[in-house]
Amino acid sequence: MELRVLNYFVATAQELNMTRAAQKLLVSQPALSRQIADLEDELGVKLFNRQPRHLTLTPAGQYLFEQAKEILALTAKTKSNLQSTAIISGDLTIAAGESIAMQRIMNILSNIIQDYPTVKIHILSGDYEFAKRKLNVGTVDFAVIIGNLPLSNYASLQLPEKDTWGVLMTKNDPLVKKEHITAADLAGRNILNSQQAEAMHYFDSWFGNYKDQINIIGTYNLSFNGTLLVKNHAALSLTLDKLADVSEDSNLTFRPIYPKMTESITVIWKHSTNLSAVAELFLNRLQASIAED
């Protein structure tokens, strides 16, 4: 598979219309159709279901679409970094979960951008599985991982910050009167849990004998949308501190859980990867920032 043909395929998969894709690529429609047909012959699979004026991806086409986007992103990143060896330039990509510790990361990135204006920064938000997959395929330089997770396959640097688990609720909820929330307080309540915490059974021990009385109505991947559900009084949210707006102007407030549960924050990268100049710069500045504390 040639990169040029993969680019043609991705454009066609995005447009789901051969004419629009050809216009986007600045090629003729017959030439594009021929390239896609040749790609299908090469792979021995059908990539598109062809309908009048419209295309849909087959399961094989959907799989190739996801893989091709990763391949093209990695190719562009590699080319950019190779072309910027004379000075610190190129792209720095970080996959990260939501944490107050990201403020340290953002401070470092802000200083790098100020010192090296040609550097491009890309932040991808997601949970551990998302960040790990991006790191493994090479489309990100670093991942910021929240929690005590298996990291033996990676180089790592733990940040000083820790996140504290608690319950997000509206300010008129009866639990607002409490300084901290116990599992007994959540019995009979609708609870929205972190997708990562739910999948890894973080709270099973903390729930204890109340586990069957706590109604987990669903999960969130990133906290903002879960916050909207809390605002609608549909549920309380088990979440980390300092992620939601709990200022005087907000209708939300946060109470830590008891017994207390905290999470470490770790920056990881691949052992076997030769870091680009800008990635080395970021890592050096991160280490210096931690040493200063």
Results as ranks from 00 to 15, higher is better:
I88D: 04
S89I: 08
G90N: 07
G90V: 01
G90M: 06
D91T: 10
L92Y: 07
L92W: 08
L92R: 09
T93P: 11
T93A: 15
I94R: 03
A95K: 13
A95S: 14
A95R: 13
A95N: 09
A95T: 14
A96F: 05
G97I: 10
G97V: 11
S99V: 03
I100A: 01
I100F: 04
A101H: 03
A101Q: 05
M102T: 00
R104E: 10
R104N: 01
I105E: 02
M106H: 02
M106N: 06
N107Y: 06
N107V: 00
N107L: 04
I108E: 02
L109V: 04
I112S: 02
I112Y: 00
I112M: 07
I112T: 08
I113T: 13
I113D: 02
I113M: 02
I113C: 04
Q114W: 07
Q114H: 08
Q114N: 10
D115F: 12
D115E: 15
D115M: 10
D115W: 14
Y116H: 15
Y116K: 11
V119F: 06
V119K: 09
V119Q: 04
K120D: 13
K120A: 14
K120C: 13
K120W: 04
H122R: 13
H122C: 05
H122I: 11
I123S: 07
L124A: 09
L124E: 10
S125N: 09
S125Y: 15
S125T: 08
G126Q: 13
G126W: 08
G126I: 09
G126Y: 08
D127A: 10
D127F: 08
D127E: 13
Y128I: 15
Y128E: 07
F130H: 15
K132D: 06
R133T: 12
R133P: 03
R133K: 15
R133V: 07
K134S: 10
K134N: 14
K134H: 15
L135R: 15
N136T: 10
N136C: 15
V137Y: 12
V137K: 12
V137N: 12
G138C: 06
G138Y: 02
T139P: 09
T139C: 09
T139I: 15
V140M: 04
V140S: 01
D141M: 12
F142Y: 13
A143P: 02
A143V: 03
A143Y: 13
A143H: 12
V144D: 10
V144W: 14
V144A: 10
V144N: 11
I145V: 10
I145F: 05
I146E: 00
G147M: 04
G147H: 09
N148V: 06
L149C: 01
L149T: 05
L151T: 09
L151Q: 07
L151S: 03
S152C: 07
S152G: 01
S152V: 02
S152E: 10
N153L: 08
N153A: 12
N153C: 09
Y154S: 02
Y154A: 01
Y154I: 03
A155Y: 14
A155D: 05
S156D: 00
S156A: 02
S156C: 01
L157E: 03
Q158N: 05
L159N: 04
L159M: 14
L159H: 01
L159T: 03
P160W: 15
K162E: 12
K162L: 12
D163L: 04
D163H: 01
D163S: 07
T164H: 03
T164A: 00
T164E: 07
G166Y: 13
G166T: 14
